[in-house]
C-alpha cells in the first residue's frame, strides 16, 4: 500500500484517487456501490455562502464521448452544508476536500475559507475559480478580483493571484486551486496560483461548449452554453497537465475524462500527482475503486515502488 501514498502540502492521502467536485454529490449518494473509505479523497459539490438554486432545466445532455452540464452551482449554502452534510461526511470518515466558490467576490471566498477552518474533518479547501455555469456579478466591489472584460477569475493571472493570496491569508487548510481550460496559456494561471500560495492546482474544470437540437433549433441546455466533460476532453486535460508540470513546480490533481486505470495512468505520466474521477462516476460508480486496484497492479507489474516514480515520467 505504501506505494500509493501521496502528499499535497501537509495533506497525506492513502492513495491518489479522488472524486471530482460536483460528480460525487456529498459522498453518501455512492455508499451503496463502493466502500467510501477506500477513496483517496472526496471533493464536495462546490459550496457558496448563500444557497443557490442553480440553472433551469434541461441541465445536462450527452455529446460524443462526453456530456454537457449547466447545473449552475446548485447547493444549500455553507451553513446548511455544515449543519446537514458535514456530520454525515465526518461519520463516513472519508478524507474531505470542500470546494468553495462565489460569483467573483473575494470577500465571500474569504468568509467561506474562514468558516471551514475550524473543522478538523476538512482536510483541504478547493477554490473553484473556474465554474463556467454561473452568471457574472459586475457590481463595482467585485472588480478587484474579476477584470471587467473577463468572465472567470481563473482566466486572468492577476485575479487568480489576488484571490488565492486572499484565501491563503485566511485559512490554514491545504489549498487547492481549480483552473479552467478556457484560457490561452494555462501555465501563467498555474504559476499565479502557486506564487499566491496554493498547495496544488486541479486541472481541469469543464470546457465551454454547446449542442443544438436541429429539430427545435434550441440549445439542448436551457442556459444555452454549458461545460463539456468526459472522455472527449481527456486529451486537452492531459496536454494541460503536461504543460504545467514542465513549467511550474506544484502538485497537480489531474481531471478530465478519467474512466479507467489506463486513462488515470496517462495523467500521472503527464505529471499529475493525483487524479480525480468526474463523469466516470456516472458511467461506472465503481470506477474509482477499480482504478485504485488497477494502479496497484500496474506498479507491481512494472516493478515500480511508488506511484510518485511515474509522475511526469513521460519519455521524450
Amino acid at each position: 500500500m505504501a506505494g500509493l501514498i501521496i502528499n499535497i502540502g501537509k495533506f497525506k492521502l492513502k492513495n491518489p484517487v479522488m472524486m471530482a467536485s460536483g460528480t460525487f454529490g456529498y459522498a453518501e449518494e455512492f455508499k451503496d456501490f463502493i466502500d467510501l473509505r477506500k477513496i483517496g479523497a472526496v471533493v464536495t459539490k462546490t459550496i457558496t455562502l448563500k444557497p443557490r438554486q442553480g440553472n433551469l432545466m434541461p441541465r445536462t445532455c450527452e455529446t460524443p464521448q462526453g456530456m454537457l452540464n449547466s447545473i449552475g452551482l446548485e447547493n444549500p449554502g455553507i451553513e446548511s452544508f455544515i449543519r446537514d452534510k458535514l456530520p454525515i461526511l465526518k461519520k463516513i470518515r472519508v478524507p474531505l476536500i470542500v470546494s468553495i466558490a462565489s460569483e467573483g467576490n473575494a470577500q465571500e471566498f474569504i468568509a467561506l475559507a474562514r468558516r471551514l477552518d475550524k473543522f478538523k474533518e476538512v482536510a483541504a479547501v478547493e477554490l473553484n475559480i473556474s465554474c463556467p455555469n454561473i452568471k457574472i456579478n459586475r457590481s463595482p466591489s467585485h472588480q478587484a478580483t474579476r477584470p471587467q472584460n473577463q468572465k472567470l477569475i481563473a482566466q486572468d493571472p492577476r485575479a487568480t493571484y489576488n484571490l488565492v493570496r486572499a484565501a491563503r491569508k485566511n485559512t490554514k487548510k491545504v489549498l487547492i486551486t481549480k483552473l479552467t481550460p478556457n484560457v490561452t496559456d494555462i501555465v501563467e494561471i498555474a504559476r499565479a496560483a502557486k506564487e499566491a500560495g496554493s498547495d496544488a492546482v486541479s486541472l481541469i474544470n469543464t470546457l465551454n461548449a454547446m449542442s443544438i437540437d436541429v429539430d427545435t433549433r434550441k440549445s439542448k441546455i436551457a442556459a444555452i452554453t454549458a461545460g463539456l466533460s468526459g472522455p472527449a476532453i481527456r486529451p486537452v486535460a492531459i496536454r494541460m497537465v503536461w504543460e504545467v508540470y514542465r513549467k511550474v513546480k506544484i502538485p497537480i490533481v489531474g481531471i478530465g475524462g478519467i474512466v479507467d486505470t489506463h486513462s488515470a495512468l496517462e495523467f500521472f505520466i503527464a505529471g499529475a500527482s493525483a487524479i480525480a474521477v468526474g463523469t466516470g462516476n456516472f458511467i461506472n460508480p465503481k470506477a474509482s475503486i477499480e482504478i485504485i486496484d488497477g494502479i496497484k497492479k500496474y506498479l507491481i507489474r512494472n516493478k515500480i515502488r511508488s506511484i510518485k516514480n511515474i509522475v511526469g515520467s513521460l519519455k521524450i
Partner: peptide, 14 residues
Amino acid sequence: EHMACGIGACLGCV
C-alpha cells in the same frame, strides 16, 4: 427529466 447519474449526485434532473 434528463439524467446523468440517476443516484442524486449530479443535480442534473431537478
